[in-house]
C-alpha cells in the first residue's frame, strides 16, 4: 500500500512537470509571434535577425526540455 502511494506521488509529480513544457511552449510562441510582428513591420530587417530568433527559441525551449528531463528522471530513474 505504501509503495502504491509513493508511486502515485511520483506520477503526479511527472504530470506537474509537464506543465513546465507548457510554459516553454508559451515562451516559444511568444518569441516567434513577436518576431513575426516585427518582421511584418520591417521585412527588410527580418532576414538578418533569424539567427537571433533561433537563439531565443533555443533558450526558451531549453527550459521546457529541462522540465521534460525532470519528468523522465521521475518516471524512470527515481
Amino acid at each position: 500500500m505504501e509503495g502504491d502511494i509513493a508511486e502515485m506521488g511520483k506520477y503526479i509529480g511527472v504530470g506537474l512537470t509537464a506543465i513546465g513544457m507548457g510554459g516553454a511552449a508559451i515562451g516559444v510562441g511568444n518569441i516567434a509571434g513577436n518576431f513575426l510582428s516585427g518582421a511584418l513591420r520591417n521585412p527588410s530587417a527580418a532576414a538578418g535577425q533569424t539567427a537571433m530568433l533561433f537563439i531565443g527559441i533555443a533558450f526558451a525551449e531549453a527550459l521546457g526540455i529541462f522540465s521534460f528531463l525532470v519528468a523522465l528522471l521521475l518516471m524512470f530513474a527515481v
Binding site: 508511486e7 523522465l72 528522471l73 518516471m75 524512470f76 530513474a77 527515481v78
Partner: peptide
Amino acid sequence: MAETANSGIGMPQLD
C-alpha cells in the same frame, strides 16, 4: 515500470 527501472533498463542515458 518501476521494476524495469530498478533492473537497470529504465533510462539508458543514465547508465
